[in-house]
Computed example of a mutant assay.
Amino acid sequence: MNNQLAAEGVSDNSHSAQLSDGKFHNSAEVERPSFKKTLGIFKRFITEKKIDAEPKGELPMHSVSHAQLERLSNDTVHFVKLGHSSILAKVYGEYWLFDPVFSERASPFSFIGPKRFQPTPISIAELPNIAKVFISHNHYDHLDKAAIKQLVDKTDSFYVPLGVENDLKKWGVDEQKVHSFDWWQEQNIANSQIVFTPTQHFSGRGLTDGNKTLWGSWAIKVNDKRFYFSGDSGYFAGFKEIGNRYGPFDITFIETGAYDKDWADIHMTPEQSVQAHLDLQGDVMVPVHNGTFDLAFHAWYDPLKRVAKKAGQEQVSLSTPLVGEVFKIQDTAIDKAWW
């Protein structure tokens, strides 16, 4: 599949080097959990006692309004952390959303599954019109069906991994709005370059669709500014390749949370997240994928404490804004231990 097809929103999975036997694969082999191991993980979730899985009180947050966003200047890139991995960007006047998750649960059900303990700082109804929505992969804590349905009429374009376009079409998104990408595919528009880059992860929203859609990350260049959005990934050599091809990055949004020894290949530890940032040739690092849902066995604050310690040891500029706090791509790191 060539770049022009991606730019036109046309999906052709058959040409992807990552696809074989009807499923997508990582560049390096990762452990495939056996049925026995999967049962063991479920047993842990049922029986293992968690300590501080959620905060005991409300977390600090800044509410964001439509009017506040409109007042932001159009001469740079502004970011707002919306919770978990969701990021709102105002990119030289255009609004872009990354992995927008607004639902109460990261689950196919409204009554069971991980429930958010940190609200979003703004509702979808309050958001301005969105030029671009970017999706990293189809897991429930990154692809929110209810949010997509609410965004359909106020979004110009959706950028998704191969295969995910089929879900969006089912949910009412006009296929002309959907642009599906393979790894390393680029789209160049006016003053921006958008690249879908590899990660080491997996996909699936049910029992029968495992790895039938692709997963990845986004490397963005707009004018002379560059930023990176990791999606989910285990630590792998691909970070160095992305950094060599598209870095250095002014800012990286790196998955830091939901790690465990039982799935070490597909989610990084905080220490590995710092190394990924270094591999990517990043300047300022913002740890995401934490502080919103209980998705693993560690304490809710553990990712932030560990990443702050490692960043200090490696002299990495770690930025830890509050949910709802607005910051610019050229800003120095927000050094705030709010956890």
Rank of each mutant, 00 (worst) to 15 (best):
M1L: 08
N2F: 11
A6K: 04
E8V: 01
N13Q: 14
H15K: 15
S16T: 04
L19G: 06
S20G: 07
D21F: 02
N26Y: 05
V30R: 02
V30Q: 09
R32K: 13
F35R: 09
I46E: 15
A53K: 07
G57W: 07
G57T: 07
E58M: 07
V64F: 07
S65P: 02
H66A: 12
Q68L: 15
K81L: 15
G83T: 11
L88M: 04
Y92H: 13
E94T: 03
F102H: 02
F109G: 06
F111P: 08
Q118M: 13
I122S: 11
I122E: 12
S123G: 06
K132N: 13
I135M: 05
Y140P: 06
Y140K: 09
D144Q: 04
A146W: 03
A147F: 02
K149E: 15
D153E: 14
S157A: 05
F158I: 01
V164G: 09
L168W: 05
K170F: 13
D174A: 09
D174P: 00
V178A: 02
I189F: 11
I189V: 14
S192T: 09
S192H: 04
S192W: 07
F202H: 09
G204S: 03
K212P: 02
T213N: 05
G216Y: 04
K221R: 13
V222W: 09
N223S: 13
S230N: 11
D232F: 01
F239H: 00
K240C: 12
I242N: 09
Y246H: 12
F253P: 02
E255M: 07
T256Q: 02
G257M: 07
G257T: 03
A258Y: 03
Y259F: 11
Y259I: 00
D265C: 02
I266M: 13
H267S: 14
Q281H: 10
G282T: 00
V284Y: 01
V288M: 09
H289F: 11
H289E: 12
F293S: 05
F293K: 01
F293C: 03
A299I: 10
V307F: 01
A311F: 00
Q313S: 15
Q313G: 12
Q313A: 15
Q315S: 11
L318Q: 07
S319E: 06
S319K: 00
P321R: 02
L322N: 03
E325H: 05
E325K: 08
F327P: 06
I329Y: 11
T332F: 08
A333D: 04
